[in-house]
Design a protein around this nucleic acid. Sequence first.
DNA 1: TTGTAAGCGTTATCAC
DNA 2: GTGATAACGCTTACAA
Lengths: 342, 342
Amino acid sequence: MSDEHGPQGRATMQHVATLAGVSLKTVSRVVNGEPGVSDELAARVRDAVQRLGYRHNLAASNLRRGRRTASIGVLVQDLGNDYCAELLRAVEARARTRGVVVISASLDEEPEREHELVTGLVERRIDGLILMPATDDQGYLMPEVHAGLAVVVVDRAPRGIALDAVVSDNRAGAANAVRHLSSFGHRRIGFLGDDPVIPTASERLVGYREALADLGLPEDAGLVRTAVRSEAEVGAAVREMLALPDPPTALFTARNVLTVGAVRALRDLTVRHAVALVGFDDFPTADLLDPGVTCVKQAVLTEGELAIDLLLSRMDGHQGPVRSEVVPTTLVPRGSGEIRPG
Amino acid sequence: MSDEHGPQGRATMQHVATLAGVSLKTVSRVVNGEPGVSDELAARVRDAVQRLGYRHNLAASNLRRGRRTASIGVLVQDLGNDYCAELLRAVEARARTRGVVVISASLDEEPEREHELVTGLVERRIDGLILMPATDDQGYLMPEVHAGLAVVVVDRAPRGIALDAVVSDNRAGAANAVRHLSSFGHRRIGFLGDDPVIPTASERLVGYREALADLGLPEDAGLVRTAVRSEAEVGAAVREMLALPDPPTALFTARNVLTVGAVRALRDLTVRHAVALVGFDDFPTADLLDPGVTCVKQAVLTEGELAIDLLLSRMDGHQGPVRSEVVPTTLVPRGSGEIRPG
DNA sequence: TTGTAAGCGTTATCAC
DNA sequence: GTGATAACGCTTACAA
């Protein structure tokens, strides 16, 4: 509460020891709650700690102990995205119970950032890493894993290296969306997705195609738009697709941002009750829109919990072979996906 | 890429030096890009670094250098909330340009967690802290600030200590919402807000009351509901309020989660086009709902940038008096706030 | 250009 | 019980 020391710099154990009139080691014992210190000295030490505003220096402590830093990194594409934010929350909750702090950052699909951030985190000696990769090869992590870094990849399957992973069943989820639309009579279903270099985007496209093939529906190249990145771009894509001579009667959007953009476009075109829509990845107000937006919901909470559990087990020394969890999705019908062709 | 060392433990500079056949100091020079090392030795060192998978240990480096850790903490209420997530993104973007990593966590309005997390971060010797307080007194930060920790408080004014702060103009924003509704003929405007121990909640309530007084409208205790915490609770509150003998013709919800809950309730009651609604704090699909939801929008990006700029300036040694930024809000009319009384 | 010594704040070892 | 001393991995002086 007081200020025995200057406005700059922290008191060290030595300062505390001097003020308390004891040795450095005694302070260390008190601070670490080790037994074998008389009540009187312990009290003197605690008093000095208070007066100096002493705070234990974990960096120095870990350096000497050779212990872990009790910190993990979580690298996702965009902390502003609901999927990523929820994932982080799930990880954080579980990490806190272990006294582990979470260093998080967004990659924005930039491989460069992934490299930079991983380097920064490794130099800070994080104990574990949960990664939603922006690179198309995570082989560069090999030395880190070898040196004892625990790594779990989420949302996208790891490439170029065998790592524990947690992913949604993207193919099955996408295929299910198409089958759902087909069951309501649609035969011309448009696909709007991200750049297929992003594994989830390509998996969802594969699922779309598989379902079309299964259903005996022809694939029309004009109804497939990939590399649609933003809400603005998806609006233009929807407009173009619906202006085709033989337009689709239903749309499947492969990411939540694209779904919202498509809803906006359909509303502007006043066809929101005429063109069916199913989106991959849920979003908070999907049920409040008119019509409600039918979504393929990912079990984000489950994925986050699986990821942190896998990570913690590795951090605890688990040495077994790589584990891969594929988490099923659920289709939530809300109206937009149950519109019949006009 | 190779594994000269075991699956546990990291190579140190000494290992590199031995393998390269040079002194420890030479390795240090190469790793830190200091001049004055012959090309040949530098190459030998780099080769050894590669082979051993050596990574610079920032903790040890900082310990000796007495330098900063190039890390900051960001403690918000809920990383899943759009306001918090956007704030974090803004902070993160700016921090990255300075090589500063961000350790983030959610407090969920629990003072205990704030204390725990701050302690953990201080023990890790973060250079700065951006805090959305869950405590009603941040005086406990005094010794940390004194010891050189840079702190900026966001969203809620600091209490019990003078700190740099960035807050929305909650009173003016709330008052503006009420005036807006009044200008459309409403005289009975319901208030739904959080627990008034939360400063933003009480400020918004004050703004509501001030506007009523200014407009010469009577305040009806039955139209004011505080301590509404969740989406579920707000639904019940809306139902009760609208069941009153003399129900409100308009609602003002003081937080985005409550706004969404109110929209859901109004829809379920099939009065969404009959009862006006203005919400404090914008949310992503507010324009897509039917009617669009009129919101008092906070300049989150601006707030985040101001916060990190204030923090960085303190971290750079700025010693001036405490600065307090009050960021204006904007009312965005979208339909729900322009409904006239029935 | 390269290497040696000491020390950053802490803890482990082993004496007193 | 308590305290000297060395050491963790690194960088700053200062020599060579």
